[in-house]
């Protein structure tokens, strides 16, 4: 029970400061979950983000479910999810009940223009941290460039490929390439023998 409360509380803190979507959250998660709590590793987080992108639902919520499940199974996943939702629910209920023109307030607009700059920096930090362990050879670099180009210029392309489809295709390509490599390696070994 104590562990579940700890999960809930840790994720409640994260949910309250989850500005700028799932990706900006990564440095925060590294700080809270990897360094402070030791619940997971940066490598695991990286893989959970990759899956969270191509499964339905909010990416940040998907990652919190993974973290909770690793700690305490199904109950842990639910505790982390509820913790993560606590902040946003509370804030939106207050905004909906009391602040009619919250988003139009000048002070709010200025504050969030400032926060958006910070979100850029946080995401840049996330990319730099993940780059080394993900873009490891020519194949992964080429894949990075292709996926980057397809999603960055999706507005000018004549066809629209949903992000989830891109990620799934990339996974299948990785699977095929590594299988072909393994087979070649096995054949070479047989040839040597």
């Amino acid at each position: 029970m104590k562990d579940l409360l700890d999960l809930w509380f840790t994720y409640m803190k994260i949910g309250f400061v989850n500005f700028g979507g799932g990706y900006a959250m990564l440095p925060l998660l590294e700080r809270e979950l990897v360094n402070k709590k030791g619940w997971t590793t940066m490598e695991e987080l990286r893989d959970w983000f990759a899956i969270g992108q191509c499964t339905p639902g909010v990416i940040a919520l998907n990652v919190s479910t993974f973290v909770g499940h690793k700690r305490k199974g199904v109950a842990g996943a639910i505790a982390a999810m509820l913790g993560f939702l606590t902040g946003p629910i509370a804030i939106i209920l207050v905004v909906a009940a009391f602040l009619k023109n919250f988003a139009q307030l000048e002070v709010v607009q200025h504050a969030f223009a400032g926060i958006r700059v910070c979100v850029c920096v946080l995401i840049a930090q996330a990319v730099i941290r993940l780059w080394k362990s993900s873009v490891i050879d020519v194949f992964t670099f080429v894949l990075y460039v292709i996926i980057f180009a397809l999603s960055a210029f999706s507005g000018v392309l004549p066809f629209k490929i949903p992000a989830a489809v891109l990620v799934v295709l990339a996974g299948l390509t990785g699977l095929t390439v590594s299988m072909v490599r393994n087979r070649k390696k096995a054949e070479r070994k047989e040839g040597d023998a």
Binding site: G20, G21, Y23, R46, D47, F49, A50, I51, Q53, C54, A113, R116, V117, V119, C120, I123, A124, A126, V127, L130, W131, S133, S134, V135, F139, T140, F141, L143, Y144, V145, I146, I147, F148, S151, A152, A163, L166, V167, A170, G171, L172, T173, G174, L175, T176, V177, S178, M179
Partner: peptide
């Protein structure tokens, strides 16, 4: 097989994160 899938998933995931960051940069 799972390892192989992640081998492709990871760079794709980072490419999407980069694009998300650039989109925020564009407006801010």
């Amino acid at each position: 097989l799972v390892e192989g899938a992640f081998y492709g998933l990871r760079p794709a995931s980072i490419a999407m994160i980069t694009v998300a960051g650039l989109n925020v940069a564009k407006i801010s």
